[in-house]
Amino acid sequence: MVKIKTVNLNLFYGSFKALSNINLDVKKNQITAFIGSSGCGKTSLLRCLNRMNDFIRGVKIEGEVLIDGKEIYKNVVDLTNLRRRIGMVFQRPNPFPLSIYDNVIYGPKVHGINHQENLMEITKKALSSVFLWRELKNKLNDSALDLSGEQQQRLCIARLLAVHAEVLLMDEPCSTLDPIATAKIEELIMELKKKYTIVIVSHNMQQAARVSDYTGFFLLGEMVEFGKTEKIFTAPKDKRTEDYITGKFG
């Protein structure tokens, strides 16, 4: 089932065309990876999917983005609800400078859940889902900034689970983490796939090959090739994809 679909998507920063004619199907409960060298537009595309580009001045977007078949740019969209459903994990873990508990319940509170018991229940569930509950259940009032990078990134994922996100957009979620932490986060991502649709940007091709079901290869704002991950990595159709994967450039 297709969760997110883009149709002839173009994105301009002023007069600079950063994305060109992107047609993409993101399947539900699958992990889709975007790979490609720096500056090819992976982040830009990701931020189209939850309309985070709205905050950047001078951005122009053409084409369509459909979530569950509904266009999100042309129709009147409840952006609050859209962003709740399409959650985002950033490159650098960005917990709020609040307590661990307040970080998790921030989203639910924003969306109108205020009951203390409910909030505690939500916190427990969200932290358990990212395997942090046992470590942190006695430290819920500590500052989130004191956590390790890996814990912070897990917490940022937990924040999204707490508002019942359906899609998790992850922009190089492991790029600031060491290899062991990276392996653990990857494990978490594969676990989360059961319940969530995941789109992950990665600079690391092994990572994309390890975790993803589908892979899109990007080059200078174009999606050169898209398909099943094993296909892309074993038998790419496009010469440029092959060059990138075999390390001839990029």
Partner: peptide, 20 residues
């Protein structure tokens, strides 16, 4: 990143100001 994190969770600008 604080602001982005909050807005990406669906918070309004005002909620972002008061909450984060």
């Amino acid at each position: 990143s604080y602001k982005e994190g909050s807005m990406a969770l669906g918070a309004t600008q005002w909620q972002t100001v008061t909450g984060v």
